[in-house]
Nucleic acid binder design. Structure first.
Length: 941
DNA sequence: CAGGCCCCCC
DNA sequence: TTTAGAGGGGGCCTGA
C-alpha cells in the first residue's frame, strides 16, 4: 500500500482498549523501570501504535479517550456495585501516553459523557457517509456494531508485531452469524465472559447463541420465551431484564454530538527531540530504535532538516477537544542520576606485593570489609581471577589487579591477601558472595568470618524484586553505577574478557562495585532488623550459602556411557516416530515447531472442533490439549511420544554429559538462593531439580546419577507430605493434626471424610480425588481447576470442595485469615518470618487479586517447607563436619536431600540424616522422613 | 537473541 | 475474538 492510497483513510483507536490490553499482556511479568514505574501499558500502547504506523502509514488518525462518567458506567455500576476500577499502573500510564501522542503529533479526542467506542462509532459513520474508509481499533466486543461497507476493524497485536485487519466477511465468519445485529445480540448474551456485561445468568454462551439464531434477536427471544421448555424457560424468563440490559450496555451510541472534520485529524511529523526525551525518561531504549524505524523518512538524513521539525508551528488543534484528563495528574518527577564524574571518590590501584601488604595491614584493622572479585567468566568453576576490589569506607577503595598470564605472580599476591580472607574477626560483605567464595576456593583461599551478602539481604526484604547490583544501586541508593557492558560489550560471543579492559577502567568499575555494595549493606542491614529478618538472615540464609558452596563444589557423578547409549536408542526411536508422523500427516514438517504442528493438527487434519489458541494466535498444542484429542487420530499418540522422547534427549540425555566438568569429571549445578519468591532454592546449569522420575524412560536418566565409586552409595532422604503437614500445623486444624498424629494415610483419611464413608471402604479413585484436592488446597483450588484435574463435573467438584472445608473447618478459617492478614499487613510470613509482599491483594481486578490471594495461602506453606529443609541442611552439614564423616550432601530437591556416602558410614549417617531432618523444627505434627540407599539416585529414591 | 511454548521436577 | 481458570521453578526451539 502506498501513501497515496491512504488519502481517504481514517484510523480510529480506542485508547483505553489498547492501554488495558497492553497492561494485561504484561500482567505476569510487568515492566518496571528503575524509578519504580510500571511501564507495561505505556510500552505496549506505543508499540502497537508504531506497528500501525509502520504497517499503514496513516495520514489521518485519532486516538480516542473515555472521559468522565458515561452512560454505560452508570448503568453498570447500578447492576454491580464493585465495578472494576482503573489499576494504578494505568492511571500512571495515561499522562505519559498523552505526552507521547502530543510529541508524535497524533490527534487525540474525547467527549465528556461518552465512551470512546461511541465517539469512534459516530465518527466512523460520519466518515463513511462522506466516502472515507475507516479502520477502527476498539475493544473487541463492541466493534461488530459498526460493521458495514466501508468500515474495517483491526486488532492490535498483544505482544508480537502483527496487527490484523479484518474485513467484514471475516468478522461475520468468525461469529458465524449473518447480520451485524445478530452479532450484537450474541455479544449481549456472552454473560460472565464479558466482564462488563451481565448477560443472562444461567444460560450458557452456546445455548444463547443457538436461541438467538433461532429467534433472530434477543428481544424476539424474550417475546417468545413461553415456547421454551423446562429449566431454560425459567432461566430466560427470570432474567429478561438483565438480558435486555445486557444488550443496552453492549449497544454503542452512534449519535454522539461531535463534529467530524477529516482535515483536523491529520497526522503531523513528530517532534523528534521531545519523543526521544520522553522515551529516555521512561528508559525505553529499544523504543527509540523502534521510533527511528517507524519514521524512516525523518531519520534518513541524520543531519538533515529534522531540526526544523521540532519548531514546526503546525499544531493540530485537536488538543482542545481533549480537555479534562491530564490536568490533575502530575508527571512523576524524573530523578537525576548522579554520574560517576560528579562523585568525589578515591579509588586506588594496589599492584605491587609491597602495596598489597600495606593494604592487608589496613584491612586487618577493620571490622567490616566489602570485597568483590573480577574474573574472566560468570561460571565460578572456570573463572580466573582478574582482580579483587576492597572497600571499607564510603567513596574509598582499593583494587588489586592480577596478571592472568602469570599464575605464579597471581598466587603470590593471593598469599599476601590470604590472612585477610581467612581472618575470622573481619566480617566480609559482598554481592552474591557464593560466587566469590567459590572462585577464591579454587585459589585455595577459604573465606572466613561473618558474611553479609547484600543480594540475599535484599531477597529477604523483598523476595519478588530483582536483586542485581545495578538495580539495587538504583533503587536503594539512587545511584547508577558503571555498567559492565560499557566495558566489555553486550553479552554474546563478541563480549571481551574483563582482563582486556584497561587497568584504570578496571579499577574504577571494580572498586565502585565494592563501594556501592558496602553502602548497600549499610542501607539493608537496618531494614533486615526492622522487618525481623535478621535471624533468618544470619542463622539460615548466610550459613546455608556455605552449605550450597560445598554442594556445588562437590558435584555429582554421572554415568556418561549409559546416557550415550540411551541417546543412540532415542535417535532411532525418534526417527521411526518422525517417519510415521510425516506419513500420517501427509507431509514433512518441523514437529518441534508448535506453530507448524498446530497448523497440521487443526487446519490440515481438522482434529478437535474448537481448537484453543495461545496468546499469539497460534494453536495451543500442549500436552493436555493433545491428550484430549488422543482418540480422534493415531497421530496424536505418536506426537506425544515424540515430544516426550525429544524432551528427554535434548534436555537430559544429550545435555547432561556436556555439563560434566573436565577436571572433576562431575556435574556441578548452581543453586540460586535468591530467585524463588517463596524461599525455595532453584537449580540451574544444569537444573538438577527436575531430573525425570515419572516415566520408565525418565527413570533411566535418574539411574545415570551414580555414587562416587563402588565403595560409596547414594542416600536419598525425603520428607513425606511436608506441605500438608505444615498446613495442618499452621492452621491448627484438629482433624488434620489428629490424622497425621495417628499415622493415617492422609489422602485416604481425607477421602473418608469428604465422601462420608469408612476408611476401609475408600476406593482407589476416591483416594486419588482426595489427593488432588489436598494438593489443590495448597495451591488454591477453584471448582473449575479441580474438575479439569479430576474429570469430575464442575458441580461435583464444587460439592467436593465444600465437603472438604466441612471436614477441616479450621483449615478453612486459616485460609481466610491468611488472606485477611495479607490485606491488613501487605505481606504474609512463614513460620520463621520469611515474608512475601502481596500488593495485588487489593487489586480490583479479579484475576490479579485472586492470584495474590492464592499466594497468601501458598507462600507461607511452600516457604515454611523451604525453611524447614534449609535448617536441616545446615544442621546436617554441621554434624557431618563435626564428626568428620566423609559423607557429602550433593543435592536438594525441595523436600529431598541427596548424599554420597562411603559404605561404612551409611548406617550411622542415614540415622543422623533422618533424625536431623525430622527434628529440625518442632511442630504439632510429626515430620516423617523416608531414607533410601542405592548405587544410583533412582535406586535410592 | 529473546520470548513463546512446552515439559520436566517438587 | 477474549484472556484465565493451582503454587514454585528451568530449558529448548523457533522465528525475526
Amino acid at each position: 500500500m502506498t501513501s497515496q492510497d491512504c488519502d481517504k483513510k481514517l484510523f480510529l483507536l480506542d485508547a483505553y482498549a489498547l492501554i488495558f490490553r497492553a497492561y494485561y499482556a504484561f500482567i505476569k511479568n510487568p515492566r518496571i523501570n528503575s524509578q519504580g514505574i510500571n511501564t507495561s501499558a505505556i510500552f505496549g500502547f506505543t508499540n502497537t501504535l508504531f506497528d500501525l504506523i509502520k504497517k499503514e502509514n496513516p495520514s489521518h488518525l485519532a486516538v480516542v479517550f473515555d472521559v468522565g462518567e458515561t452512560f454505560r458506567h452508570r448503568e453498570y455500576k447500578e447492576y454491580k456495585a464493585n465495578r472494576q476500577e482503573t489499576p494504578e499502573a494505568i492511571r500512571i500510564a495515561v499522562p505519559y501516553i498523552h505526552q507521547i501522542l502530543e510529541a508524535l503529533k497524533i490527534p487525540c479526542m474525547s467527549k465528556e459523557g461518552y465512551e470512546a467506542d461511541d465517539v469512534i462509532g459516530t465518527l466512523a459513520k460520519k466518515a463513511e457517509r462522506e466516502g472515507y474508509t475507516t479502520y477502527m481499533m476498539t475493544s473487541d466486543k463492541d466493534y461488530a456494531q459498526l460493521v458495514s461497507e466501508n468500515i474495517f476493524v483491526f486488532k492490535p497485536a498483544s505482544r508480537g508485531n502483527d496487527i490484523e485487519i479484518w474485513d467484514i466477511e471475516a468478522v461475520k465468519d468468525k461469529f458465524q452469524v449473518e447480520t451485524p445485529s445478530q452479532v450484537i445480540d450474541l455479544l449481549g448474551m456472552m454473560g460472565d465472559n464479558v466482564d462488563n456485561i451481565p448477560g443472562i445468568p444461567g444460560v450458557g454462551e452456546k445455548t444463547a447463541k443457538q436461541f438467538i439464531k433461532e429467534y433472530g434477536s434477543i428481544e424476539n427471544l424474550f417475546a417468545h420465551s413461553s415456547e421454551l421448555k423446562g429449566k431454560m424457560r425459567e432461566k430466560v424468563e427470570a432474567n429478561k431484564e438483565l438480558g435486555l440490559l445486557s444488550k443496552k450496555l453492549a449497544t454503542i451510541e452512534t449519535n454522539v454530538p461531535i463534529e467530524f472534520n477529516y482535515e483536523s485529524l491529520t497526522v503531523d511529523k513528530p517532534n523528534v527531540d521531545q519523543v526521544i526525551k520522553i522515551f529516555e525518561d521512561l528508559e525505553f531504549r529499544n523504543m527509540i530504535v523502534n521510533f527511528k524505524k517507524t519514521y524512516p523518512n525523518i531519520f534518513e538524513s541524520e543531519n538533515g532538516p529534522e531540526k526544523d521539525l521540532s519548531n514546526s508551528v503546525s499544531v493540530t488543534g485537536q488538543r482542545s477537544l481533549f480537555d479534562t484528563l491530564d490536568q490533575d495528574i502530575e508527571m512523576k518527577e524524573s530523578s537525576n542520576w548522579k554520574t560517576i564524574e560528579n562523585t568525589d571518590h578515591l579509588y586506588q590501584l594496589t599492584e605491587t606485593p609491597m602495596a598489597v601488604k600495606l593494604l592487608v595491614e589496613k584491612l586487618s584493622k577493620q571490622n567490616i570489609v566489602c570485597f568483590d572479585t573480577e574474573t574472566t567468566s560468570t561460571d565460578s568453576m572456570i573463572a580466573e581471577l582478574v582482580g579483587i576490589s576492597f572497600s571499607y569506607e564510603k567513596a574509598k577503595g582499593y583494587y588489586v589487579p592480577f596478571n592472568t598470564k602469570d599464575k605464579e605472580k597471581t598466587q603470590e599476591l593471593i598469599e599476601i591477601l590470604r590472612p585477610f580472607f581467612e581472618n575470622e574477626n573481619i566480617a566480609k560483605v559482598g554481592q552474591n558472595l557464593k560466587y566469590d567464595y567459590k572462585v577464591l576456593r579454587r585459589y585455595q583461599v577459604e573465606v572466613k568470618g561473618i558474611l553479609f551478602d547484600t543480594m540475599i539481604a535484599h531477597y529477604l526484604i523483598n523476595p519478588d524484586a530483582r536483586h542485581n547490583m545495578d538495580i539495587l544501586a538504583e533503587t536503594e541508593l539512587n545511584y547508577k553505577p558503571i555498567s559492565i557492558e560499557s566495558l566489555i560489550g553486550k553479552k554474546g560471543k563478541n563480549q571481551k574478557l574483563f582482563s582486556s579492559v584497561p587497568l584504570d577502567e578496571q579499577k574504577e568499575y571494580a572498586v565502585e562495585d565494592s563501594d556501592i555494595t558496602l553502602q548497600l549493606k549499610n542501607k539493608l542491614d537496618p531494614q533486615l532488623a526492622k522487618d525481623n529478618l535478621k535471624k533468618l538472615f544470619t542463622e539460615i540464609e548466610m550459613p546455608l550459602m556455605k552449605v550450597l558452596v560445598d554442594m556445588e563444589w562437590c558435584g555429582i557423578n554421572l554415568d556418561i556411557h549409559a546416557l550415550q547409549d540411551m541417546s543412540k536408542e532415542l535417535v532411532e526411536d525418534l526417527s521411526r516416530l518422525e517417519k510415521e508422523i510425516y506419513s500420517l500427516a501427509g507431509e514433512v514438517f518441523n514437529i518441534n515447531s508448535p506453530k507448524q504442528l498446530g497448523d497440521i493438527i487443526f487446519d490440515k487434519l481438522k482434529l478437535g472442533n474448537k481448537p484453543k489458541k495461545t496468546k499469539t494466535g497460534q494453536y495451543a498444542t500442549g500436552e493436555e490439549v493433545l491428550l484430549k484429542l488422543a482418540h480422534t487420530h493415531k497421530i496424536i499418540d505418536l506426537l506425544l511420544e515424540y515430544r516426550q522422547l525429544q524432551k528427554l534427549k535434548s534436555t537430559y540425555v544429550d545435555a547432561l554429559p556436556d555439563e560434566v566438568n573436565p577436571i572433576t569429571k562431575r556435574v556441578h549445578t548452581t543453586f540460586a538462593q535468591t530467585v524463588a519468591a517463596t524461599g525455595r532454592l532453584a537449580s540451574n546449569n544444569p537444573n538438577l531439580q527436575n531430573i525425570p522420575i515419572r516415566t520408565p524412560r525418565g527413570q533411566e536418566i535418574r539411574k545415570a546419577f551414580i555414587s562416587k565409586d563402588h565403595n560409596h552409595k547414594i542416600i536419598s532422604a525425603d520428607y513425606s507430605q511436608i506441605e500438608l503437614r505444615i498446613i495442618a500445623a499452621m492452621s491448627k486444624d484438629s482433624a488434620m493434626i489428629n490424622s497425621f498424629n495417628n499415622g493415617e494415610d492422609f489422602h485416604k483419611a481425607t477421602a473418608s471424610k469428604v465422601f462420608h464413608i469408612p476408611m476401609d471402604q475408600v476406593t482407589k479413585e476416591q483416594r486419588s480425588h482426595a489427593k488432588t484436592i489436598n494438593f489443590g488446597i495448597i495451591y488454591g483450588v477453584s471448582a473449575f481447576g479441580l474438575s479439569e484435574q479430576t474429570g469430575l463435573s464442575r458441580s461435583e467438584s464444587k460439592n467436593l470442595i465444600d465437603a472438604y472445608y466441612a471436614a477441616y473447618p479450621e483449615l478453612k478459617k486459616y485460609i481466610s485469615e491468611q488472606i485477611e492478614t495479607a490485606r491488613k499487613n501487605g505481606f504474609v510470613e512463614t513460620l520463621l518470618g520469611r515474608r512475601r509482599y502481596l500488593p495485588d491483594i487489593h487489586s480490583k481486578n479479579n484475576v490479579v487479586r485472586s492470584h495474590a490471594e492464592r499466594n497468601a495461602v501458598n507462600a507461607p506453606i511452600q516457604g515454611t517447607a523451604a525453611d524447614v529443609i534449609k535448617i536441616a541442611m545446615i544442621k546436617i552439614h554441621e554434624l557431618l563436619h563435626e564428626k568428620n564423616y566423609q559423607t557429602k550432601l550433593l543435592l536438594q530437591v525441595h523436600d529431598e536431600l541427596v548424599f554420597d556416602a562411603p559404605d561404612e558410614e551409611i548406617k550411622e549417617v542415614s540415622a543422623l540424616i533422618k533424625n536431623t531432618m525430622e527434628n529440625s523444627v518442632r511442630m504439632e505434627v510429626p515430620l516423617i522422613v523416608d531414607v533410601g540407599v542405592g548405587t544410583n539416585w533412582l535406586e535410592a529414591h
